[in-house]
């Protein structure tokens, strides 16, 4: 399935390179500049939600900024890939109308360039944890490549879908932007996931807490959290301990193949409706 894309590796390299060059402008400073948004958000969330609203309950003393960043960096990877992925086809209309090549290359290169951004950014989270003397759990850290792979496939599935839908219906972009906002609050980023189960939480929330893990992004973000905060990792289901992780892997596989199939199908008219 991905094999026929190998013929186009020069093209993919060109597109990823272009995307990164625009973002970094060929400098290390450019890389830090891309971190400005998550770092800025970390400061804002720490002040607003850490101190004013006290969402930090359940986390070790002073660990809230690290917790926020450890969730925010993977979220930014997802968020940017999906938002930019929405425009991956429609933004290249002048090319798509005039030449043919596999169009899944556009969302795919968008994902790869965001992945290239994400990996050093996450390394920075590890550095921050060391500086803050927060223990890093090696057994969880060893799973990091798997987590990234899982997230990458899930993200690509979503990006494929929204990119082709946005060609047919131009308001998909607005809806995606709105949904991404809601989606972020449904992930454990600004609040520790243990709040769902804490005794002073609304009993209704406690009862429905299991539904929370039907959101694959909540599971994925918690996997990253588990590296630093074992008690904030994905909770074990009483019957099947790894249930939420297995569920997320399955959803990712199904979503990816469904998205690929739909992309292929809708791609047939992309050349004329774009």
């Amino acid at each position: 399935m991905l094999a026929h894309l190998m013929k186009y590796k020069e093209l993919m390299y060109f597109l990823v390179h272009k995307e990164l060059r625009i973002r970094y402008r060929n400098s290390l400073f450019g890389f830090f500049w891309t971190l400005l948004e998550p770092l800025g958000l970390m400061v804002i969330y720490t002040v607003v939600f850490g101190y004013l609203v006290n969402l930090n309950k359940g986390l070790p003393e002073g660990a809230y900024p690290l917790y926020v960043l450890a969730g925010l960096i993977p979220w930014t990877f997802f968020n940017n890939s999906v938002r930019k992925g929405t425009k991956a086809l429609s933004g290249n209309a002048s090319l798509i109308k005039k030449v043919y090549f596999p169009r899944e290359i556009f969302p795919l290169t968008m994902l790869i360039s965001n992945l290239v951004n994400f990996i050093p950014a996450f390394a920075l989270v590890l550095v921050m944890a060391m500086v803050m003397n927060q223990p890093i759990h090696g057994d969880q850290l060893a799973l990091l490549p798997g987590m990234i792979l899982l997230q990458a496939f899930f993200t690509l599935g979503v990006a494929l879908l929204v990119s082709v839908l946005n060609v047919y219906y131009r308001d998909v972009e607005f809806i995606v932007n709105l949904l991404m906002r809601a989606w972020m609050y449904l992930c454990p980023i600004i609040y520790p996931m243990s709040r769902l189960y804490s005794r002073d939480t609304d009993p209704v929330v406690q009862q429905l807490a299991d539904l929370y893990w039907l959101n694959p992004m909540a599971v994925i973000i918690s996997l990253y959290h588990g590296i630093f905060f074992p008690e904030q990792g994905v909770p074990a289901h009483p019957a099947v301990p790894g249930l939420w992780i297995i569920y997320t892997i399955l959803v990712t596989i199904i979503l990816f193949f469904a998205a690929w199939y739909l992309f292929r199908k809708m791609n047939r008219r992309v050349g004329e409706v774009i």
Partner: peptide, 26 residues
Amino acid sequence: IELGAGLSRDLTGAENIRLNCAIFGL
């Protein structure tokens, strides 16, 4: 095909040459 065939507006002429060559598998 038609005017401005396969050219990406925001890229320079040089980048468009490389982009198109890559599209055609060079």
